[in-house]
Amino acid sequence: MSQTVDARGLSCPQPVLLTLEALQKSNQGQLTVLVDTDTSKENVLRAAASQGWQEAGVQEQGGEYRITLTKG
């Protein structure tokens, strides 16, 4: 089951908090996170790694990032 967290337009640390909440809730599977700053992208990737999730891809388009995370 794939979920999406749309954290565009939110300032730090909100994107990370939303990502952590979603990761903890779903426990495994796939999660897509949308962010619109470099800082948020870096921080979301760190947050995912700290919970044992893997980065399955980051797509950039017009300054926005679509981050795909997987676990299990």
């Binding site: 730090c12 640390p13 990502t19 921080n43 979301v44 947050a47």
Partner: peptide, 12 residues
């Protein structure tokens, strides 16, 4: 907290 991704934009 740095490991968890709580790094402020200015620090990046």
């Amino acid at each position: 907290f740095a490991l968890m991704g709580l790094i402020p934009a200015g620090s990046f």
